[in-house]
Design a protein around this nucleic acid. Structure first.
Length: 377
DNA sequence: GACGCGTGGAT
DNA sequence: TATCCAAGCGT
């Protein structure tokens, strides 16, 4: 399925190209291979499934607030999630926080420098382990992320989907061959060069093959199949749901305190706060009925639903929603944390202290708009 | 192996 | 406007 390519030449060219073309990013203060392991770790976790342009500001703020692994381990989880607010995939932040505490307790605060030990830490998988080992500790360990998959799938013009396990194994093997053909101490530069090449030149659409240092070796370029590589397994269509959220006022609408609930640690948006509510089910006559049912189940109170506030459209990766927010008040009962981890009465101003998903942030923005239209009936 | 897990930029 | 999907990991 693959022809042999000169891996020492690939490594050599990647080192030269990387030295000349790599971007100036805040986590690249030191040369690849001798960076602070904590900074490498944070940047790699943030960059998972996330665009670099988005990561830059989050990384800078994070390192200002949690400059050391110890400062992260000692922080409150709510503050960690607040720093992650808006980045998505919040288990990354929860795992990072837990792993920092493990490293403090088990390794005296020193990030381990072996693959086996790194893989034990929550949130560190094969890719992140390889990145830390090569970029921080200079070890000749391979990495395989989306960029490297794409570059290698084109170099070897692979016609099997890169999402299949067999293909992934083959790609890991090739990434290992390249990094082992690298001069001592240069593995970080080669690994980062592969990623950077994928990010700047060997892009998913319209690859800049004329600028590629490996163009004459590339089997996809030779065969004219760049736009067909890598082969991906098509994903399923995403369903759409109607979701209702209640802004429950302790006193009158837009006055005094309102009720927020903390989502369970496990599952979607775990540990974040929200306006209580949920998905509309077939038995719900309308969205106010959805709200009354959900909040009775989650917090054991009966509510009266008032005027609509706003509607938010949002597309997640695997489904999309229309979120309808309503004013509401409690008719009977006192809130209990049943379907949520915790709940609070808070003022509109102090909502900033809590981490919220972007959908609820949009509701908050509307509540803060000076407006005469937010009456309850 | 398949699925759950967020967000926003590009096209 | 709709669709894709970016430096993956855990279950």
């Amino acid at each position: 399925m693959t022809s042999n390519l000169p891996t020492p030449s690939i490594a050599h060219r990647l080192i030269a190209w990387h030295a000349d073309q790599q971007r100036d990013l805040p986590w690249r203060a030191a040369p690849a291979g001798q960076r602070d392991a904590y900074a490498v770790w944070i940047s790699e976790i943030m960059a998972q499934q996330t665009r670099i342009a988005t990561v830059i500001d989050y990384f800078t703020r994070w390192m200002a607030r949690f400059p050391t692994l110890e400062s992260l381990a000692e922080a409150d989880q709510q503050e960690v999630l607040k720093m992650w607010e808006g980045l998505g995939y919040y288990s990354r932040a929860r795992n990072l926080h837990r792993a920092a505490q493990v490293v403090m307790a088990e390794y005296g605060g020193e990030i381990p420098s072996s693959r086996a030990e790194l893989l034990k830490l929550p949130g560190i998988g094969a890719y992140t382990a390889g990145a830390i080992l090569s970029l921080a500790f200079g070890q000749a360990e391979p990495i395989l992320d989306g960029n490297v998959k794409r570059v290698l799938a084109r170099l070897w013009d692979m016609d099997r989907s890169i999402d299949e396990t067999a293909t992934t194994n083959e790609l890991w093997r090739l990434a290992g061959e390249i990094v082992r053909a690298t001069p001592a101490g240069k593995a970080g530069e080669v690994n980062e060069g592969l990623m950077e090449l994928g990010g700047l030149v060997c892009t998913p659409q319209n690859p800049r093959c004329l600028l590629c240092p490996l163009a004459d070796l590339c089997q996809a370029a030779r065969n004219g199949t760049q736009s067909e590589r890598p082969v991906r397994t098509p994903r399923k269509r995403t369903p759409h749901y109607q979701v209702a959220a209640a802004v429950i006022w302790e006193d009158a609408p837009l006055q005094g305190r309102l009720l927020i609930a903390q989502r369970p640690q496990k599952g979607m948006l775990g540990g974040l706060w929200e306006f209580p509510g949920g998905k509309q089910e077939p038995e719900d006559a309308d969205l106010p009925a959805t709200l009354r049912r959900e909040i009775q189940e989650e917090m054991a109170v009966e509510i009266a639903v008032g005027a609509p506030i706003t509607t938010v459209q949002h597309a997640y990766t695997h489904f999309s929603i229309t979120l309808h927010a309503f004013h509401a008040r409690i008719v009977s009962g006192t809130p209990q944390a049943i379907g949520c981890d915790d709940w609070r009465w808070t003022t509109l101003d102090s909502l900033d202290e809590y981490p919220f998903p972007v959908t609820d942030q949009k509701i908050i923005a509307v509540l803060r708009e000076p407006s005469d239209t937010l009456h309850i009936d």
